[in-house]
Amino acid sequence: MAETKGFQSAVDIPAEKAEILARPLEERDDIVVCENVHKWFGDFCAVRDVSMRVKRGEVVVIFGPSGSGKSTFIRMINRLEEHQQGSIVIDGIEMTNDVRNLDAIRREVGMVFQQFNLFPHITVLGNITLAPQRVRHMPRGEAEALAMQLLERVGIPEQAQKYPAELSGGQQQRVAIARALAMQPQIMLFDEPTSALDPEMIKEVLDAMRELAATGMTMLCVTHEMGFAREVADRMAFFDEGALVELGPPDQIFNDPQEDRTKMFLDQIL
């Protein structure tokens, strides 16, 4: 419900998407469905019995103490970690060991990492065009035009010919966002995108994310930026000790948390 959040965006939203986004959240379809998901590292239970449904175009902010399994959870949504029990369905595709399903899911889901993980040996432009060219077989001209358009969107078109190491952290992270968007994903995952950044660069990355949310992108963000969460999130999920403790709209989480653990954690960080 981008419109209701009260900021104007100049970005065009495709017609079919606009149609879906026009509906209230409850009437949209589920794009991510997790049922009783478990994950262990050896004997250690990292994620236990998490069930969560995310609507199309919804923004979910995931927070919790470190080691609470929130990163592991979103990494399972594009199979960087394998879940061991339960089921995950992305946009109607069940996550199984079928390679074709996995490839389809990876194309549906973009990801932005805490440490950016840009490819240091190719230019910013190359970083963005690599996957569209090699995976989607997009002609070079088209891929580059798309890349420039995305760089424009994240505000750094002039950096296209540079190498990642020549950019500041905030710029690198914005390139990483552009790179993920170049595959035109339905869902974007953010794994603590601002944690490795200097304070003055956090804003530029959050702005890019805000703008993205306004276009109706489905987003799952692991972040501790509570201001961002309050402003942009449709729902917030609190993780502790591998379990999904509480899930609800920001209003409820901030003003009337149902669980003591949520309240305690928020008291500590706010």
Partner: peptide, 24 residues
């Protein structure tokens, strides 16, 4: 992180090896 990033933008194992891991 490099392999993870390559995987997350949809490059297959072979493409990751050829365009990301090997050149570096």
């Amino acid at each position: 992180g490099q392999t993870e990033a390559a995987r997350s933008v949809g490059l297959s194992g072979m493409l990751t090896l050829r365009h990301v891991t090997f050149p570096q």
